[in-house]
Design a binder for these strands. Structure first.
Lengths: 225, 225
DNA sequence: CACTCACATTGACCTGTGTTAAACAGTATT
DNA sequence: AATACTGTTTAACACAGGTCAATGTGAGTG
């Protein structure tokens, strides 16, 4: 499963590369490399020069901001199959605006921004794919700002949960948290202690049952009030 | 100054249109129209189908989110010369993710998304311009999330102030708020009452002087601690 | 099988900001 | 000039959620 060789089909599955012809793909793969990360290992730091963007092959990448006092805030968790930092080439200064580290052991593919830009220059289709991708990030962040400013901690969590529910679910469903609770808490801008209390309250109100990192939702239609 | 005729140069000044040739520009202007908005008038609503994007010719546009309980949160204030909603065409569903209304009497240019997309199809240069633009929005929103989660209300305000300071300023400077205080407060996710207290505190600590909507900063180097 | 270590939970307490209510100021309206 | 309105300020109070401290718990290690 885990290899240093990158397979064309592995990339083609992702929208950003779905429109590439064989030549373009070969061109991109030439500059790409596989990076193995241990749990906790840093991939890049905020303010660092951005020459590459990434795709997670396995494991989970944690994108986070840090404050001068050492506080950290997880802004996104990137799962296997997803890309990240693909928009940074177009930012002024081409500097990563966040930190990235491995939540667990990860295998990550790194692509040269320059190589991808060359492809973009010759393929409006790929431009459109990247723009669709960027707009998805924009939308997600608007959703986050909405949550942070117009919702309380409990609502942020229930919305987060409901977001994980597979389409077609009628009433009850089990959701496995994809990261330790303190990481989910940070993702939702909640302290671990408060997160624990929210879990307890929702449980005592009969909305959910918690078993380790598995949350059983009693009824998705009544969870968010 | 204010006319229903759109001048080519007026558009060319903006990065999104800076690379267009005469034909492309003519093509776009054909589908464009001038919209006059009274103070407070709504331009579009969240969830509404997005067929157009906009450029502010005069006045200020307020982009905001609203909660079911009626609460509102200003996420951006768009000044004359700036465009907005240009990224929505690429979003799933092509739905505005926020509300837009006129903060004061506004003149706004509306462009057809379809027409602009046609241009994008034939111009990678313009694609690159739009991607640069979108990455700017992404960066701004990361900055906002950072502020909301890792900074307190006072720090959010002082950073906001310092952001308005023209480059090259040494120590003191006067900043005129571009909107009523309660709007600035909402932009910073602060209640008007809290905003007022913050102003009073910074004043009593000798950092600023407030005169209506003008803030005199004593020393930009010591304002944010 | 102790021992550790990282994470989770609980309880007691604290505080930044929200909330409520009222007074105030400036501007527009009659 | 009186009135109404809209935005701002002040003060008293309330509370969501942060902080601190202690205990619990399970997985990993020698």
């Amino acid at each position: 499963m885990s290899t240093n060789k990158i397979m064309p089909d592995e990339l083609r599955r992702h929208p950003l590369f779905g429109g590439l012809d064989n030549d373009q793909l070969a061109q991109l793969m030439e500059t790409a490399r596989v990076i193995q990360l241990d749990e906790g290992q840093q991939l890049f730091q905020c303010q660092q020069e951005a020459r590459q963007f990434f795709m997670v092959r396995s494991g989970t990448i944690r994108l986070f901001l840090s404050a001068p006092d050492g506080a950290e805030k997880v802004i996104h968790l990137i799962a296997a199959g997803e890309t990240f930092a693909e928009a940074i080439t177009f930012m002024e200064g081409q500097i990563y605006p966040v930190n990235a580290s491995a939540l667990d052991a990860c295998e990550v593919l790194a692509f040269s921004n320059k190589a991808y830009r060359t492809i973009l220059h010759s393929s409006t289709d790929t431009c459109f794919r990247l723009m669709a991708d960027m707009s998805k990030w924009l939308k997600r962040q608007i959703t986050d700002i909405d949550a942070l400013t117009l919702q309380n901690a409990t609502l942020r969590f229930t919305n987060y949960l409901l977001h994980q529910v597979p389409a077609g679910t009628e009433h009850e469903v089990a959701i496995t948290l994809g990261a330790p609770k303190n990481v989910i808490a940070s993702r939702l801008s909640i302290q671990p202690e408060s997160f624990s209390r929210i879990l307890r309250n929702l449980q005592s109100e009969g909305h959910i049952t918690v078993d380790g990192n598995v949350i059983y939702i009693k009824d998705i239609n009544t969870l968010g009030q």
